[in-house]
Design a protein around this nucleic acid. Structure first.
Lengths: 276, 276
DNA sequence: CCCACCGATACCGTGCGGGTATCGTTCGCG
DNA sequence: CGCGAACGATACCCGCACGGTATCGGTGGG
């Protein structure tokens, strides 16, 4: 199977429409139809059920969409990591959520820079749920993830720190005088919604937020309250109040990397992180 | 990057010889040279240093070999799993070492077959260190691996059972009267060597073995002794003696599967395994 | 009932992948 | 020291497969 065919297939599988898919791929519709036909004939499997009005995935097509995306990610990762491996300019790319691990990250970077044989580290701060794809498609070499929010499926990981969570409130909020609180007491309050793995938001009450800066501004405006890991405290504006949530799930920060690609600099970074 | 180019690159990187690589690929040498040249130009990195006498990988080439193999495995896996997903004939392919988990496996298969919604399970018994590639390139959906011997890098796993190890001896062996033994006492005895991840054997003393049947025959012949997990006992010929090794590393059997590809039947199998 | 939509088919041109022949360089050997 | 063998690069040619345009066939909506 050629990557070109697989890209074509994924486009059609996502659009479920040959015309739009061809458009997205920058080509005409007939060769796309033909390419998919070729692919189906060569695999010996029907991937789509098509009527002249609708296109749908067969079970085999569903499998190929899932596995094919992973394969395309692996191809992209191979390409990107190779391009970054030009002689003498070795670097590491670390990705993490903007606003998270605000105390851990500088410590880690300083400690690693002091290690013998360390290389420059580029830091990518991205929105929630983008780190995984960065790691999967080779834009990054290593990530700081936060359980139970992020999934570590397919990555090797080491646990770094575990912490409790706190409730963040605007200054004048009725609950801001409390010294602690439980999840049960928050059950009626809509918490902000983060984008899922596909980048879309689940339905429900509560404001849609994309990153911490946005969230904190909404809280300052009295439009939201949120439960966040304790380590976000140093980043809070002065006008917000913090109330420990006694029974919120513990948040574990882990360092994660793709299971192959364990270069010497990466191994050093991981070792440094676990020793902090 | 097209898979064809990547296959070409891997062939050259493994042979370190354009002529032999072209031979292996069933093509002539000039188009292969040209394809590699194209790839290098498009990636913007040099992958090989070539003189007219020798070909060697650059650092970037080393990265591409590692990442590219993973990507090709992912492509193959996508293809194979898709072909196996033809409607109505869903099956699971389980791979494990021949001779290992001899008690666990039938129990698991029986328990799973009794589950509602279970599908037929094909069992592949293979040599040591082949399971990982089966799982990686889509020939299998799920594997029983044994820590610390196998690597679970890149797979999701659940621990199933942990057991000690025992020393297997031919009947008349001087140590066969012992009721227990320690690793230190075995330090002078050469233990059999298993093939590594590349299929090659490490240098050193001790016979080279490929599977359990071969090993047990060598032990019966008095040409080897071995330390194996306790669960191999039911498979031993009557003329072998077993001595518990008190301080041998514990062996953990885990069920492992690729982190994506979590179909309903697979999830059921995993759940069944963890409940045994 | 007709038209609009959409995927499949027919047909054509061209670019690229692969073949053969040959060159340039380098090492080994007489 | 010079010749030949080994090996990758280059030159050149061919065929095919990929992509484009035009059109068909079937289906559902107005």
């Amino acid at each position: 199977m050629e990557t070109r065919e697989l890209r074509y297939f994924v486009a059609v599988a996502e659009e479920l429409h040959f015309g739009r898919a061809a458009d997205r791929l920058g080509m005409a519709q007939p060769p796309l139809s033909r390419a998919i036909g070729h692919l189906e004939r060569r695999l010996g499997v029907s991937l789509f059920t098509r009527t002249s009005r609708a296109v749908a995935l067969t079970p085999a097509g569903t499998v190929l969409l899932r596995e094919g995306r992973a394969a395309l990610d692996a191809m992209e990762a191979a390409e990107r990591r190779t391009q970054r491996a030009v002689d003498g300019t070795e670097r590491l790319v670390l990705v993490t959520k903007a606003g998270a691990s605000s105390d851990l990250l500088p410590k880690l970077l300083d400690a690693y820079a002091a290690e013998p044989g360390s290389v420059p580290v580029d830091v990518i701060l991205c929105g929630v749920a983008e780190q995984e794809s960065h790691l999967r498609d080779g834009r990054a070499d290593v990530a700081l993830l936060h359980l139970p929010f992020d999934s570590t499926a397919g990555f090797d990981t080491e646990e770094l720190v575990t912490e409790g969570q706190v409730l963040i409130l605007p200054g004048g909020h009725p609950l801001s005088t409390r010294t602690s609180i439980t999840m049960a007491e928050l059950s009626g309050i809509p918490l902000p919604r983060w984008p899922g793995h596909n980048g879309a938001y689940a339905d429900g009450p509560g404001p849609e937020v994309r990153d911490h800066a946005q969230l904190l501004q909404l809280i300052s405006l009295g439009r939201a309250v949120a439960v966040l890991p304790e380590s976000c405290r140093p980043l809070l504006p002065y006008d917000l109040t913090v109330v420990p949530v006694t029974d919120a799930p513990q948040v574990t920060t882990v360092i994660a990397w793709p299971p192959h690609s364990r270069s010497r600099p990466l191994a050093t970074l991981i070792r440094t992180a676990t020793r902090l």
